[in-house]
């Protein structure tokens, strides 16, 4: 098993996802939980892009020199994960903004961001 760029990226993405998950479970500050979610998001994006990488190939963009319209299928990498991640990043921004707005509302009502102070649903 030789080490290649995509394996490094795969392991990095997995470790970032685990750190994000751990932070989301153990922190009590709402902003910290949302920050952990965004780390998880970044890790997942790195993982998906790494799955589409083929060693020794380049980006799927025709520039006329290295990649031309004829040798695109043997010179370029898989474009589908890139198209997926492109939209996933924008949606991730929207979701983060929505969560932050709800955190702001919680802070206005309860005067605290610590989830241990939200005692309404505890028994």
């Amino acid at each position: 098993m030789t080490l290649t760029i995509d394996k490094v990226a795969l392991v990095l993405g997995m470790i970032l996802m685990l750190i994000g998950l751990w932070g989301g479970f153990t922190r009590t500050n709402l902003l910290k939980i949302i920050l952990s979610f965004s780390i998880f998001d970044t890790g997942l994006n790195i993982l998906i892009v790494a799955l589409g990488y083929l060693p020794g190939r380049t980006a799927p963009i025709i520039d006329g020199n290295v990649v031309t319209a004829e040798n695109l299928a043997v010179k370029a990498i898989d474009p589908v994960p890139q198209a997926l991640v492109l939209t996933a990043i924008v949606i991730g921004f929207g979701v983060t903004a929505l969560m932050l707005a709800y955190a702001l509302k919680m802070n206005q009502h309860r005067k605290s961001l610590d989830i241990n102070h939200y005692t309404d649903l505890k028994w």
Binding site: I5, V49, G52, Y53, R57, A59, I61, I77, V85, V90
Partner: peptide, 17 residues
């Protein structure tokens, strides 16, 4: 992302993330 040959994703991540 740039090293993984996906400049589109790299631009989006730098601008938004």
């Amino acid at each position: 992302f740039l090293v993984l040959a996906s400049p589109d994703v790299a631009m989006t991540e730098a601008a938004i993330g």
